[in-house]
Design a protein around this nucleic acid. Sequence first.
DNA 1: ATGCGTGCAAATTTTTTGCATTCGA
DNA 2: TCGAATGCAAAAAATTTGCACGCAT
Lengths: 133, 133
Amino acid sequence: MRRNFSAKRQAIYDMLINRTDHPSATQIYEDLKEDYPDLSLGTVYRNISLFKDEKMAISVCSLNGEERIDGNTTPHTHLVCTYCGKITDLFTNDVGTRNNVVGDGFIIEKRAITYYGRCRECDNRLKSKNIEN
Amino acid sequence: MRRNFSAKRQAIYDMLINRTDHPSATQIYEDLKEDYPDLSLGTVYRNISLFKDEKMAISVCSLNGEERIDGNTTPHTHLVCTYCGKITDLFTNDVGTRNNVVGDGFIIEKRAITYYGRCRECDNRLKSKNIEN
DNA sequence: ATGCGTGCAAATTTTTTGCATTCGA
DNA sequence: TCGAATGCAAAAAATTTGCACGCAT
């Protein structure tokens, strides 16, 4: 399938890359409404889904019922403020961890490490499919 | 507010502790329906929300539109299979990372580190509130 | 008796989807 | 021109909430 990279798709992607707060679909929609008054929320969701499929974006977490998206797939750490909902990035050179304080004064209450991938069963299933086909 | 730990609340909590697959609200509901035919989905959501408030449970991630919950608040790593939706735990003694393979043959495609807590602004706000009151 | 916990159902919010139309290579 | 991308609105799915009733202390 040939793919067009439309102006709106580009704008949505730019937002994921340029905004530092890892917006939700609705936040992207609200923001782009100004420049693209005829933008549809469905389009935002459709493109986010596409970006995730193509590994151009990832889900950071679910916060207050909204999924938050990051267009930066470079390995880095996320700082999620559960009080105001702001999400920032922490790159290794920012690390100055003393007493659970990192980056620009962010206070860690909970650390989470999550690996996304495929379990042994799914890996086997995928392998055998490749052989059959 | 004094709190009763009702049979249903206990059953929901047990499910979060005993099930190893980190179920969603709907999954818990379906499962408990057998033993508690009059259970309400609202009750499951209300209790999950309560457990999160009291730090007895955490949100693992949002997978296929459903928030997945863990009642084990001990620090550990989550292995999320994005193919079948299974989520397992990895404790440090399981770690045998060679070539992105960990635990029981789980293949890592993406690593995510997330710190939950409070940003500097919110921390300041909370502090000054405590002084005022 | 008091008030927390729940069922039920409605309401709200988030996300997905079908279809006709528009857009872009 | 032709299929991809979108708008729109309806639908589906997930989550929250109001209210009256039940249950535990």
